[in-house]
Design a protein around this nucleic acid. Structure first.
Lengths: 203, 203, 203, 203
DNA sequence: AATGAATGAGCCTTCATTCAT
DNA sequence: AATGAATGAAGGCTCATTCAT
């Protein structure tokens, strides 16, 4: 049968509620009761689908990263100049920031945990590697095609990701002042300008 | 005798221990007993100097930010071209990352808390404003002197801070792969290249 | 089925245990663990039904006073001479002292707290007012009917209550020496004799 | 030398402070710090003169009772009719209530403790015995002299003490409504009336 | 004699987890 | 599958007591 197991529905229902509660209260201040209430289930039911609170946090980590990695991989096959592709990815990232703004505090908390916890760090690392690989590939092509000057493409990829992630940090801290899309587009454009060979350079 | 109040010594002693313990275990998993042991004091003594665990966290936030803001303000009066000054600030930031690496997980946790807590957000905002103001000033001068092309200097300042903070985030997640100094210098250099007017442009 | 809410059962169960423990150890030296053990519940369960230890103390205050006020109000509609009615009330009070002897130390502790705490004082005041009103009414009738000489009936009511409460204090202090029923009956009889008009007086 | 040891001064100083603090906060909520501050001594100094907090409470119990017993014993040698002597004692008691009103909450707390603690109960019992002996003696004389009718003099003494103590209790609970002196005088007068033989009775 | 900083045992309270229904 | 009452381990905080000065 094509319909997903009711069990999958329940799990999704719980994760959605957990995301909301974690975003509002943080991992520790979120009570299992709060998640139960937000999900419309009983506290006992949570334990039918997840072994523990930590298991919910782990599943949420996995889910959020799967979403982000999937979205990055769909972009990889796009066409256009390297600059256009990178700008397009930045825009898509901006869309995600809008959509996932609810998840932002949770993402930041994962970063904080990652700094202390090997397992979480590994998960985050995978996601970053995926992004890095994607961007490295695009940048590499840009260099090969004479669009960009020759620099270590992986270092450049790291720089772009740093811009995105850093902008997200700033936005979380000053949501009224930072406009993710505009600020990120400016930053990336200037960065790409610094990378772009002038016709004169190529001569 | 002008020996500084023992009370100040104790407070510093406690904050240092708290920083170490919080970095290792996170705010919540850190026990007052752990901080007591790390500080060489008794649990009761902690409460002679700080009203509560939260008060210790708050004092640590304040202290870390004071240190960072003080370091930023000493730079402002420096000489040289705008590019040189920005690169110098980046290098100094790199030095701090080395020194404050112990504080890194704690800083990230503050970012996570800031996304949820108005008071913490305000403190972080102040520090960012201070950095933004410093960089805006330098960038403005660079533009006025014809060193940089005309863009919104505050937007550019945000971009630079995003690079630094984002790099820090990546470094926390993949400390073996990311070399803060080298990666950040590459990113900032490319960014400044994108901003720099060629002699030809000025014609 | 109209089975009373289990919640009410539990609350009663807890108060009964608390009374026993408080009587033996006093409010402060009574541990929540002791109450839990005496009630046959776990410590956590206590907090399902009462917000705090203070809430338990407050509920006990309320319950004890409700019982006493209810018992006083059932008497008011009785018949007979004023003297008979007062003696009857005294006897009923004696019965209660026997029954509530377990609660005695707790009642005394409430008196002690009342001397310092406005809220507790108000609760105790209500109960005393209720008793005063009842006795004032009976004494007033006795005066109007020519059974007692004319004195301020409220002052006399206070005197009677003082005898009861004072006897209770003495009994708590010297339980072997003071026989509440006999001593109180003697005191009240003499007091009422002092109030009773002789046929000769009425001439 | 006749001057009392400075040590005695200090002890008195501490007890006075303790009385004030205990009256306001109760035995348990009174901190050693509070007593130290109220006494103008350091916390350490308290322990030079008293072994522990409980020792201070014990000394206070002893002191308060000594004062009361001494005051009762000075009366015993007085002259006049039994009625006059009892009324005079009542008045003196009223004076004490005024003076010791500060100590009232503490006295009540001692009653509460006495109901649970054998040692405290013994101390209180001694004081009550002293009062009972005094009054029994006076009442016995009144009976022998034909002033009062023949009843168990000890039972009557208990009745009088109950009136006093009970009135004190009521006064502590409703200080605005109860006027110790007036209410007690009324109660004792009526009681003594009930005890007094009329000339006709003696015939 | 006096101080007050320091100690640490102890208790109230919370909350993830379990389990009888 | 689902519930939610019950559990009990764990931790923040207090405060009587000690002791170096």
């Amino acid at each position: 049968m094509a319909r997903p197991d009711i069990s999958e529905e329940r799990r999704a229902q719980i994760l959605e509620a957990a995301l909301e509660v974690f975003a509002r209260q943080g991992f520790h201040d979120a009570r299992m009761d709060d998640i139960a209430q937000a999900s419309g289930l009983s506290k006992g039911a949570l334990y039918l689908y997840y072994k523990s609170k930590d298991a919910i946090i782990g599943a949420l980590l996995h889910t959020l990263f799967s979403v982000m990695m999937r979205s990055s991989q769909t972009i990889e096959h796009d066409d256009g100049s390297a600059r256009d592709r990178i700008l397009r990815i930045t825009r898509r990232f901006a869309d995600e920031v809008d959509l996932l703004s609810k998840a932002l505090p949770v993402m930041l908390e994962f970063y904080a945990v990652a700094a202390r916890d090997r397992v979480v760090r590994a998960s985050m690392g995978e996601m970053l590697d995926s992004y890095t690989a994607l961007l490295t590939h695009v940048l590499q092509q840009g260099i090969e095609r004479g669009e960009f000057r020759a620099e270590d493409p992986e270092g450049l990829a790291v720089a772009l990701i740093a811009i995105w992630e850093g902008m997200t940090l700033l936005w979380a801290t000053k949501p009224d002042k930072i406009h993710w899309r505009e600020h990120a587009m400016l930053a990336v454009n200037v960065f790409l300008d610094g990378l772009t060979l002038q016709p004169a350079d190529r001569a």
